[in-house]
């Protein structure tokens, strides 16, 4: 039995023949949010562990990138809006049923927090820095004493932010590829891993890099496990989810996903990191760059492929 479906009289831009309403802005935003979450999580963690001196890049210097990443990500999100002059409507209401709403509020907390965090380390980064106004000086001084409390908040909010980048997609029941609760943890782990890659790339301290590489290998293993789990879930689910999985198992996204995300973005950098730990000399930027690139491709592929998948009727 062959079944064919024709939709006549409809050719709406970005809806027909395939839904394509979200372009590069959304995956870029999810990517930058993930990196920011990763850096913040480890900055918070090693502060709580009292390792500010040993892990200086993780705790002090890498977090300077967080506000930049968040602001760029928010700007990308702003560009995605089609009715952008009304964006402030996001902040006149709280809607718990909408991941985008609580994501917007999370960013409203995370962005200033990351800025304050970096401000407390600014004097160490630029020795001659002068805040000029006494009030600012005192405020920063106050927060400098509260770093430990801020570290806890950062860790918690980093997890919320990281999970949110996945839940933003997984909450859409209408897109079978996204509609799996594993996307939250998967995007969180991927975000932590890209954050770590950034830290490893920046760090000049061998011990620090060593610790971070070890954590990264574990994260990559978890991520690979979650990806296998993702496909196991799809293949044992409904027809629409089996079809969604087939986009990656022989369909149009197969090569992009398995070559650029899984092999070059996860497996190969993990092998390089293991070899480096064993004493081989490998330039640190190679695995770091591969992980960062793989994470970016992963988000582009997921957003693009998810929009194609739909219910059949």
């Amino acid at each position: 039995m062959k079944e064919e479906l024709f939709i006549s009289g409809r050719d709406i831009p970005n809806i027909d023949p395939f839904l394509n309403i979200w372009h590069w802005q959304i995956p870029l935003y999810l990517y930058l949010g993930g990196i920011a979450a990763g850096i913040m999580f480890f900055a918070g963690l090693f502060t709580i562990m009292g390792k500010e001196k040993e892990m200086a890049t993780t705790v002090k210097w890498a977090p300077f990138l967080v506000p930049i990443a968040l602001v760029l990500g928010l700007f990308a999100l702003f560009l995605d809006l089609k009715h952008e002059m009304y964006f402030w409507r996001l902040y006149t209401t709280v809607r718990m049923g909408s991941p985008m709403s609580w994501g917007a509020w999370t960013l409203m907390l995370v962005t200033p927090l990351s800025m304050i965090w970096s401000a407390t380390y600014l004097k160490e980064a630029v020795p001659n820095w002068n805040w000029k106004f006494k009030l600012i000086e005192q405020t920063i001084g106050f927060f400098t004493k509260k770093r430990r409390e801020m570290a806890w908040a950062m860790m918690f909010l980093a997890v919320v932010l990281g999970v949110y980048t996945g839940i933003l997609l997984s909450a859409f029941n209408a897109r079978p590829l996204w509609n799996t609760s594993i996307l939250g943890p998967l995007f969180l782990v991927s975000g932590l891993s890209t954050g770590l890659a950034t830290i490893i790339w920046m760090s000049k301290n061998k011990t620090e890099r060593r610790i971070m590489s070890q954590i990264d290998i574990v994260l990559i293993a978890v991520e690979l496990f979650l990806i296998v789990h993702l496909f196991m879930g799809f293949l044992s689910a409904t027809a629409v989810q089996v079809e969604a999985a087939e986009l990656f198992l022989g369909g149009q996204f197969t090569v992009t996903f398995w070559v650029f995300v899984v092999i070059l973005g996860l497996a190969f950098p993990a092998v390089l990191e293991i070899l480096e730990l064993r004493g081989f000399h490998i330039p640190i930027w190679i695995p770091a760059l591969l992980i960062l690139f793989g994470g970016l491709v992963f988000r582009f592929v997921m957003v693009e492929a998810g929009q194609i998948t739909r219910y059949l009727y």
Binding site: M1, K2, E3, E4, L5, F6, I7, S8, G9, R10
Partner: peptide, 8 residues
């Protein structure tokens, strides 16, 4: 809009 669903 109109959908024409042809089967068989």
């Amino acid at each position: 809009w109109i959908v024409e669903n042809v089967s068989g």
